[in-house]
């Protein structure tokens, strides 16, 4: 009943080749097969954003994609954000602003924010709120996350 396909893809700069069941979601592949467990599953139906990763540079919900759809793609997950021991400015700003409590939403939000800041220079608070409105955080009330993203844009600005 389950057929398999071979896929090749790059994740955080590393090349992988793997035989995957065609029905396996991309997030299950990343977490289960590649052991990249930083990407989380909060709803599995495309609403919460916890599973957000970059697929060829665009933020996508990896729970809504099949692994086979990522064949040939270049992915980036939260594990690819820091340069070795050096945290990314977004990661530092999240810590400084207490933008995480349980930390479950954090990887998805970091990836969303990464794409957002790449595409939007000097955003307003409203733009930041709009930009992350597809990611649910149950703990922080969003204000410190918004502040962290604004901080980074100002640093870069």
């Amino acid at each position: 009943m389950t057929t398999e396909r071979k896929i090749r893809l790059t994740v955080n700069g590393k090349a992988y080749e793997s035989l995957v069941p065609v029905r396996m979601t991309l997030v299950d592949f990343l977490r289960g097969e590649l052991d990249l467990t930083g990407t989380h599953v909060g709803c599995e139906h495309g609403v919460c954003g916890a599973c957000t990763i970059l697929v060829d540079g665009s933020a996508m919900r990896s729970c809504l994609m099949l692994a086979v759809q990522a064949d040939g793609a270049n992915l980036m997950t939260v594990e690819g954000l820091a340069e070795g021991p050096e945290l990314h400015p977004l990661q530092r700003a999240f810590q400084r602003n207490h933008a995480l409590q349980c930390g479950f939403c954090t990887p998805g939000l970091l990836m969303t924010a990464y794409e957002f800041l790449r595409d939007t220079s000097s955003p307003t608070e409203e733009q930041v709120r709009e930009g992350i409105s597809g990611n649910i955080c149950r703990c922080t009330g969003y204000a410190p996350i918004v502040q962290a993203i604004l901080d980074v844009s100002q640093e870069a600005g």
Partner: peptide, 15 residues
């Protein structure tokens, strides 16, 4: 505790 959550190295149940 923040660093492990920020870098995707935390260990939640499903991990």
């Amino acid at each position: 505790e923040d660093e492990r959550f920020l870098t995707g190295r935390a260990t939640f149940a499903d991990d």
